[in-house]
Computed example of a mutant assay.
Amino acid sequence: MEFLHDIALQIPGLFYQTDRWFDGRGNSAFNNSNQETSDSTDQNLELALSLLNDYRVIFNQLEDWESNWKASEQGPLYWHSDIPMPSKFVDVDSICIPSFPDETYQIRFQNTQKAGLAVTFWSYRLELLMQMIKLQRSLLDIQAQSLGKNLAMAEETACLILQAAPYLTCCFEGAVASKAPLRTVSRYFELAAWEKEFYSPSASIST
């Protein structure tokens, strides 16, 4: 867990650099009356690609951490089940018993601690993907394929967090720990809804 947080400590600094890149690009466009020089455009592109590479480095570190975690476990980290969990059957622990809104479709963990660790990992991954998508939107001509892949992965990751939430919200500690990941999911779906409207064909026609 400590190594996972060590990886995550790199994320805020990268977010800061990304915000500065967007601010700098906006200021440059304003100062030049929307007439950026070829040199400034090339420099912006180079910086954006460098940032994306930094994101991929951290992203790969997270994926390596998950692979090592999987290798250290005797069974799967989680699995899906369409068999309702009997109310008297506890397959997690004797204190935290998850309550599923949909009893016919559930994501299962060996215990609540593993659910919490998985949600923490997924929330870090989703934060990275959201920023990568934001950058790739500004480089659509050369990042279209990677953008599509990241959009799909972000959607999957957000859904996994939501499906795992019952394992955490059934305990006070888990409810507290799940607040930040669930806020991240909320921001993701708000952003996804805005992007769907902004980048829809009808929006392009109207503009």
Rank of each mutant, 00 (worst) to 15 (best):
A29H: 10
I133E: 03
A8E: 10
M85E: 11
K179Q: 13
E36Q: 12
P181K: 05
M132D: 00
C96I: 01
L135E: 00
A48H: 03
Q143S: 07
F121E: 00
E66P: 06
E195I: 14
S206A: 12
D23C: 08
S206Q: 08
T18E: 02
F3C: 12
T18D: 03
S38G: 02
A175E: 14
E156N: 04
T18Y: 09
L129E: 00
S67E: 14
L4P: 00
S186D: 14
Y16F: 08
P201V: 01
E63H: 13
S50R: 11
M1Y: 05
L147M: 13
D91A: 11
P86N: 04
E66Y: 13
A165K: 04
T112H: 09
Q74M: 14
T184P: 05
G174C: 04
I205T: 13
A192P: 02
Q143R: 08
V119Q: 00
D141C: 11
N68H: 14
S87R: 09
P201H: 06
L4H: 09
P84D: 04
S206M: 06
Q10W: 06
F121C: 02
G75V: 09
A193G: 09
I107C: 09
V92G: 00
E73C: 10
S200C: 08
L45V: 07
K70V: 12
M1L: 14
A177Q: 06
D6P: 02
Y55I: 05
M130S: 07
P101S: 13
L52W: 05
G148L: 05
W69K: 05
S72R: 12
W69I: 01
Q35D: 10
L140V: 15
L9C: 12
N34G: 10
L128I: 07
F22P: 07
G116S: 03
L52V: 01
I205V: 06
Q145P: 01
S81M: 04
N34M: 13
F59T: 05
Q163C: 11
D42S: 12
T37Y: 08
D141R: 15
R183I: 09
T104P: 02
S72E: 11
K114S: 11
M132H: 04
E2H: 09
P101W: 08
D23Q: 13
Q163M: 13
F109Q: 02
I107F: 03
L45P: 03
Q145N: 10
L49R: 04
S178V: 00
G26F: 10
Y16G: 04
Q74K: 15
E73F: 13
A158W: 00
I11C: 06
N32A: 14
L147I: 08
G26W: 05
K196L: 11
